[in-house]
């Protein structure tokens, strides 16, 4: 569990439009890396290239290298389905399967990997829900629909679903932007705990959140409308928020932007 990611000279395109250009970065195992930057700077696109989810958008493609513990996930012999099994993802809007119960939602990924005895499934579902700090709230209603939970609970359900398959890496695309402050705090606490076992990359619009949860922070920016986004700098979170190397980063985090 928990692998490192090496990105070198990654560019992302939608058709002919170059959305992100020349991103290189390294993500250590068992760390939290936050991507921050203004809307449209390509931070979500970069996140989605890390588990080959960006290519499900028609016309999207990329160049450059993404290595998972040294293995190129874009090598022609690699099946994107396997990449996504190894690198889990949590989305901006909580998206439990609406027709499934809480239990089946957590077990959904496991069932894709083949049949398991019910007892083993029970164990993994409980462990995942506990790891997502949701077990106490739902243990008496596992057969109820997952869509009946509150927004914050749904998002923790999605996290439980993602970690049930024990991925190497967990990607989170603005996981708290649709949640209230209390649910946000619950997710942030959870990220802190999950860090012990997983490599986590989180995209956030909330700079306090990046400062609170991450070990390293990458700042993305774009020169103007129609220009590709770029990684301006990536460094220890403390350094980014106290003494960044680039002026653009300082302007952005201090709110003096543009």
């Amino acid at each position: 569990m928990a692998k490192s990611i090496d990105v070198s000279d990654l560019s992302i395109y939608y058709g002919k439009f170059c959305a992100v250009q020349g991103v290189s970065l390294t993500i250590e195992p068992r760390s939290v890396t936050a991507f921050i930057g203004p809307s449209g700077c390509g931070k979500s696109s970069v996140l989605r290239t890390l588990n080959r989810m960006h290519e499900v958008v028609p016309g999207a493609w990329s160049s450059g290298k993404v290595l998972l513990d040294g293995e190129d996930i874009y090598s022609p012999s690699v099946d994107p389905v396997n990449v996504r099994r190894a690198i889990g993802m949590v989305f901006q809007k909580p998206n439990p399967f609406p027709t499934m119960s809480i239990y089946d939602n957590v077990a959904a990924g496991l069932k894709l990997q083949g049949r398991r005895p019910r007892r083993e499934l029970d164990e993994i579902v409980e462990r995942s829900l506990r790891a997502a700090n949701l077990w106490e709230e739902v243990k008496d209603r596992l057969e109820r629909p997952g869509a009946g939970l509150s927004g914050g609970q749904q998002q923790r359900l999605c996290i439980a679903r993602a970690i049930a398959v024990e991925p190497e890496v967990l990607l989170m695309d603005e996981p708290c932007s649709a949640l209230d402050p209390i649910s946000t705090l619950a997710i942030e606490d959870l990220i802190e705990q999950l860090k012990e076992h997983y490599t986590i990359v989180i995209v956030t619009h909330n700079m306090q959140q990046a400062a609170r949860v991450s070990d390293r922070t990458g700042f993305f920016n774009l020169a103007g409308v129609g220009q590709p986004g770029r990684l301006i700098e990536i460094d220890n979170t403390q350094r980014i928020f106290s003494n960044p190397a680039e002026k653009a980063t300082e302007d952005y985090i201090s709110g003096r932007f543009g």
Binding site: V81, R84, L112
Partner: peptide
């Protein structure tokens, strides 16, 4: 988001259809 939820779990095309 239903389709992407399935894809992100590593579902094949057929599994996306079955799940979502």
């Amino acid at each position: 988001d239903h389709v992407e939820a399935a894809q992100a779990l590593g579902a094949t095309r057929w599994e996306v259809i079955r799940l979502a």
